[in-house]
């Protein structure tokens, strides 16, 4: 019973902390670029404002357009349930499969792309086509990285993978290094950060994510924004907990949970600093360069897989 409560509160924590993580990344970015940053609670205020506003919809919007925000939010939340945030071996570990998580993301993306085309504006269609192009290239890279992990830990279950890496202690694994780099690149592409997409603007011809949600307003927009904040944090937690799992709670007592919470907050803060640093140093690349970026991710994960087979077995 207490385990289920813990699993539930972990998912709640995901949903509640995600806007804070986004605000943290924004704050670091502002500091790096000599700007005054908005308050750390600003994303919460934005969400509250959007939730209290009326929904304006085009006359020709179909049921898909109406349903999509709920599907995206639900799929992202379910993915968040699957990823261990502060504790492993929870009852939800049974569905904590990386491929399930990738499937939830794919479902959300599919409906987002449909909704982008639903109204029939030029921007929406363009955004959908770009998103699907990037997804088609990012997904193989992500799956290869996942398979590398799966070969190292002999399981695609996130909870098992994390426990395995923990039990091994500090081992220099070339395969995990390459999988890590590949997942970072895929995460950047999938969450629409610089250099692939610019999350700060919706007035650019080259935008991807924002182009699809241009027609949304009110609580629909709030749900989609919240979902993409959760997605960013999901990738952060995934990378932090798989490759640097130290601190995560293996037993459900108060002390280790507190340590795990502090550890993950610290890891996410560090990751946020690196993300903001990368976004400040790099410029957004041309859309036609994105495939090369993702081919790099794919190559990295393939080399990870090969180096596991060549160097690590026997």
């Amino acid at each position: 019973m207490i385990d289920w409560l813990l699993a539930l509160s972990q998912a709640m924590l995901f949903a509640l902390l995600a806007p804070l993580f986004t605000a943290w990344v924004r704050r670091i970015k502002c500091w790096l670029q000599n700007r005054r940053s908005p308050a750390l609670l600003q994303p919460y205020r934005d969400l509250r404002r959007l939730f209290s506003k009326h929904v304006v919809m085009a006359h020709n919007a179909s049921i898909i357009f109406r349903l999509t925000p709920y599907i995206i939010a639900a799929a992202t939340l379910l993915a968040a349930v699957a990823v261990p945030l502060i504790a492993v071996n929870l009852p939800t570990a049974a569905i904590a499969d990386v491929i399930v998580m990738a499937g939830f993301f794919a479902l959300a993306r599919f409906f987002l792309a449909l909704a982008g085309m639903d109204i029939g504006t030029a921007f929406g269609g363009m955004g959908s086509s770009r998103e699907m192009t990037i997804a088609a290239l990012a997904e193989p890279a992500m799956l290869m990285a996942i398979f590398t992990l799966a070969m190292v830990a002999s399981s695609t279950n996130l909870s098992t993978v994390i426990s395995h890496v923990l039990a091994d202690g500090l081992v220099l694994r070339p395969s995990l290094l390459f999988a890590f780099l590949s997942l970072v690149l895929v995460g950047i592409a999938e969450t629409g950060r610089i250099p692939v997409d610019n999350p700060a603007t919706h007035l650019e011809l080259t935008m991807i994510h924002e182009a699809m949600i241009l027609e949304y307003s009110g609580r629909h927009l709030a749900l989609i924004e919240w979902a993409s904040q959760i997605k960013l944090m999901l990738y952060g937690v995934l990378i932090a907990n798989i490759f640097f799992p130290w601190g995560i709670a293996e037993t459900a007592d108060a002390l280790s949970l507190a340590i795990a919470f502090i550890a993950i907050v610290f890891k996410l803060m560090l990751l946020g600093i690196f993300l903001a640093l990368g976004e400040t140093v790099l410029a957004k690349m041309r859309l036609f360069r994105v495939p090369a970026f993702l081919v790099l991710a794919l190559t990295l994960s393939v080399i990870g897989l090969l180096s596991h087979i060549i160097l690590e077995i026997n």
Partner: peptide, 16 residues
């Protein structure tokens, strides 16, 4: 020895 293997993998990556 782990570092040797890691560096070997990086040599392969540099070839790519």
């Amino acid at each position: 020895q782990q570092a040797i293997l890691l560096l070997a993998a990086l040599v392969l990556f540099s070839s790519f």
